[in-house]
Design a protein around this nucleic acid. Structure first.
Lengths: 329, 329
DNA sequence: AAATTATCTGTAACCGGTTACACAAATGCG
DNA sequence: CGCATTTGTGTAACCGGTTACAGATAATTT
């Protein structure tokens, strides 16, 4: 690997001049610039980021902390972030925390050791001490924090929307699935839905679940129909659970949406491919990722007027696990 | 941020001694060690990875190059890799190439600039010049390369298995979906299936597709039934396409698996949640990721006897889009 | 023409670790 | 006891960039 000194020697200039050419700052004579460029070319030189990072006390890496990339909601977030940070020349350092505080801490630690310029986190312990006196731009994604800017979709409204959707379309005995208690946005959508259900003149029950994992989703589905066989409307905690419930309902011979309406949450890519295709509350994951990245980059650039929260709208994606709304209602 | 010099001063020793304590090498008196540890503790010191990387000319980062994390096969691979590299104290630098040569090149470039210790790539251009004179341990995953070790599942056998499965279960007019031409493993599974179909006494046709993307999958599904309405068995190029076909088939009122058998490829998490659940050829994605990571780490450690290929078995996951095999046959 | 200012370039310190080398003290051995 | 070896520690060079500062020349201004 050629170094800046090799280039300097080849071009017959000092390393300072080469550096000036590389970074396009300071004064460089046009003739000199050409010679340096030629040397860079002929040596196939590429500057060492590590050396630069050391002096600058800042790399061009951004830490991304996710609960679990295997959950289909997150790849989209990650992709949105990556596409956006790449536009500004940053790269991503990835970490899956599994929502475990020690893994989270370890990742933050190594992010700092690698002198990341900033960090985006989609994990829960938003206000614990790990983040508190962190001298680093941090954006929370799909989570809220008192201390740091956050980008998220409106969970309360999403929950409301889901509940209203089923009610308007005639479900009378709704089961509301409550997601894992420690996941903030799950709680929001739950409370949003709960509020609407409480106001309405219908029966409803709540089924508590403790995870979003694929393998568990089927369990919740079985539990649902065992405990509430007569339910005619299910508000799922997310699309994975919804699709598992759909699977189980069809297995039990329920007609969907005639006997049972079902609405998911997230709008993961697969929800349009289930049969019947899944009605759901869409969170714009890719856009959320992009927005979080944009916000972080503005913080990195120390721009003024950084908004503390960016809330993206949730939307009802009406597919075929809900009935058409009665036009006479 | 405290530096090693702060620690040295606090402990009343030289930086060399602190470094020895940190890395647990060289001679350090037990009393001195205690003082140093105390200073580290009280200053809450954490060594700067960037400085270390610069001197060592090697970071503790591993580059991971994927086509697109949004494709549900890859998160599992990524997770397997991450879990394994973390065990050895490495972290991941992530890149999505979209199978575009220039993005791929850019990522490799920045990986090198960041002095990664090694790299795992799941992209296609395995033997192009980008990788050729790379003085870096590289493992290809889900791809084969002449120059570098590879970890993959047996695509030919997978294709054969898929074809045999449909034939044994009585499909007579099979449609074989050919995946994107530039994706190597897609070609393997296609040829494996093709070979078996050619030998068998059945009719079959081939439908060529040019992508794996969600949005396109539905298009292939429609095209399939438009061109081959009488097909009674479909070998899909992967599970996404299979599930899209399943969706379309159900929409058209086909009975599955009675009228139409369908087999996917990959065994992504969702394939067990479709209804009917999808029969498929399983590639053990998480394990593949783990194996690739293990192999890479052995290369990094310069162990002898590195195998050039690790081939993992594909297995038939018999679910409900295929019929039970006739016990009298 | 003299004084300013702008342009161009080089020297060397600096970022924060690691380690080669030197040296001193302690220990082992014949 | 004398010499070799082991143990313990420090000094300073090094990794490969960036930049403060200085000095020289060229262009402008007065």
């Amino acid at each position: 690997m050629a170094t800046i000194r090799d280039v300097a020697e080849q071009a017959g200039v000092s390393v300072a001049t080469v550096s000036r050419v590389l970074n396009d700052n300071g004064y460089v004579g046009s003739e000199t610039r050409k010679r340096v460029m030629g040397a860079i070319e002929s040596l196939n030189y590429s500057p060492n980021e590590v050396a630069r990072s050391l002096y600058k006390r800042e790399s061009r890496l951004i830490g991304l902390l996710l609960p679990d990339i295997t959950n289909p909601f997150f790849p989209q977030l990650a992709r949105g972030i990556e596409d956006e940070v790449n536009r500004s020349g940053f790269r991503l350092l990835l970490g899956n925390s599994d929502e475990e505080a020690n893994k989270e801490l370890e990742y933050i630690q190594t992010f700092l050791q690698n002198q990341v310029v900033g960090m985006i986190s989609a994990t829960n312990n938003t206000d614990n001490e790990n983040y508190s006196n962190l001298n680093l731009p941090v954006v929370f994604l799909d989570r809220v924090s008192k201390r740091h800017p956050s980008v998220y979709a409106d969970g309360i409204e999403g929950g409301r929307l889901a509940a209203r959707t089923l009610i308007e379309r005639g479900s009378k005995r709704i089961t509301l699935i409550k997601g894992p208690g420690h996941v903030k946005p799950a709680a929001d959508r739950f409370h949003g839905a709960l509020a609407v259900l409480s106001e309405a003149e219908i029966d409803f029950s709540v089924l508590s679940t403790s995870s979003y994992a694929f393998d568990d989703a089927r369990k919740w589905a079985e539990e649902l129909f065992a405990k509430h066989p007569d339910t005619d409307g299910v508000i799922a905690s997310n699309d994975i659970v919804a699709i598992a419930i759909l699977h189980e309902a069809l297995r039990l011979g329920r007609k969907i949406p005639e006997d049972l309406q079902l609405i998911g949450y997230d709008d993961i890519p697969f929800s349009s491919l289930s049969y019947p295709s899944l009605s759901t509350i869409r969170q714009p994951a890719y856009e959320m990722g992009k927005e979080a990245a944009k916000l972080l980059i503005r913080m990195i650039r120390k721009e003024k007027e950084i908004e503390q929260t960016i809330q993206l709208p949730v939307t009802l994606i009406e597919r075929n696990t809900t009935r058409k709304v009665d036009p006479n209602a």
